[in-house]
Design a protein around this nucleic acid. Structure first.
Lengths: 216, 216
DNA sequence: TCAAAAGTGTTCCTGTTACACCCATGA
DNA sequence: TCATGGGTGTAACAGGAACACTTTTGA
């Protein structure tokens, strides 16, 4: 039986699965590694915790530095602690996830990383560490959350049409929804209200614009 | 801004919130501390991870040693990482939770602890560290899980009556349920089947005994 | 006038709720 | 025979699913 160690040799990291919906696709934010042994591979933004820093704070800091994404609503996902998840040494990862509106941030990274980019969850590149498992868990959680939480609030701009709202749901679930039922159900929830404005410009009937009335 | 540390001074622990239902009360398993600065206080079973040990494995080991509870179905709850959660040094805790049948284990602890006991969640003693917060989170998760998962399977013995099943639900939710509706709904789920046996002995009509048919 | 997307009602079905009475047993 | 908990049916309602047509606009 393993004895309680007087000194541990385990490091603690935080990783973030940040989602958005763009072009009717659910996408996740990845950075491209420069250093061996993962050069060229993609990964979720992440890094080690400071001694006086919570994982939440670490994610904030890391997102700002590595991706340019700031001050988003984050939710703890799960902690990944397989002994072999990082071949360079024992590191556990406290994973977080968040949703941000499309185009809400200008992406930029540091010289430590080769690139930062949105990737469709349906066609992810090879991911470093166990980040494929983390991303998969995050997508499952997001879909589950869609059933009971006002997830779209984090993904849409202040004004949006019902069609845009429905597209967001369809993109996350990966399946079409009935337009009338979706609108009826969503409006009955009382979460959104008409802004009084219309979106014009298309060669078709203008759409009413809505705002969120409540934040869940 | 905090810099990525070359060396971290953070320890990693695992804690377990183990529940049972006894005498129509939801109870959680606690151990009583002996050592300063928490002498006499109660805490969730827990301890530091070994270098080659996952938190899941650590919880298994710790439960066996500290409480006598073995090989239960565990689910990861959340990681608690407030900087000040342990005044003796920075320790993060990966918390797990589990449900076990009443009377399924003979409780025993080591000389390191003063006692091990089931405590009703409605009347917990003062808890060490941030274990009150962990316990509260675990109870919330358990109640939420009750809505969509076959939680009772972990709490009941192989054979049980519908009344016992209903009592389990009522104890966790802390509110009464309609007998006819509960039975109708639960039987329609197809999760349980009649064993063919009856529980006799009371000064009233014998009750049918059921088994679980599926494990969710 | 046509193409394109917006907007709207009704029916059916299923599951939930509320509610009251008879049944089998041991004492 | 009575006290006790076991066991059952039905009506009303709400929410979800399926489904087709009319409206408004720009080109």
């Amino acid at each position: 039986m393993t004895k309680h160690p007087a000194v541990q040799n385990i490091k603690v990291a935080a990783d973030a699965a940040i989602f958005t919906v763009e072009n009717k696709q659910l996408k996740v934010l990845l950075i491209q590694m420069k250093k061996a042994p993962f050069a060229g591979e993609w990964a979720l933004p992440g890094g080690l915790l400071g001694d006086e820093e919570t994982s939440r704070q670490a994610v904030d800091r890391i997102l700002t530095t590595q991706t340019g994404v700031k001050k988003v609503y984050l939710e703890q996902l799960m902690t990944f602690d397989d002994v072999q998840r990082d071949k360079l040494g024992r590191v556990i990862s406290i994973a977080w996830f968040a949703l941000i509106p499309n185009g809400g941030f200008k992406l930029k990274t540091t010289e430590k990383y080769a690139d930062v980019r949105w990737w469709p969850v349906k066609a992810l590149p090879k991911l470093a560490y166990d980040h494929a498992a983390i991303a998969k868990t995050a997508v499952s959680r997001l879909r589950a959350k869609l059933e009971y939480a006002n997830v779209a609030w984090s993904l849409l701009p202040a004004e949006f049409t019902l069609a845009e709202l429905q597209n967001t749901y369809e993109s996350i679930l990966g399946k079409p929804l009935d337009k009338r039922n979706f609108q009826k159900k969503y409006l009955a929830l009382g979460l959104i209200k008409e802004s009084g404005k219309m979106r014009t410009g298309g060669a078709y009937r203008p759409a009413k614009l809505y705002n969120f009335a409540k934040f869940v």
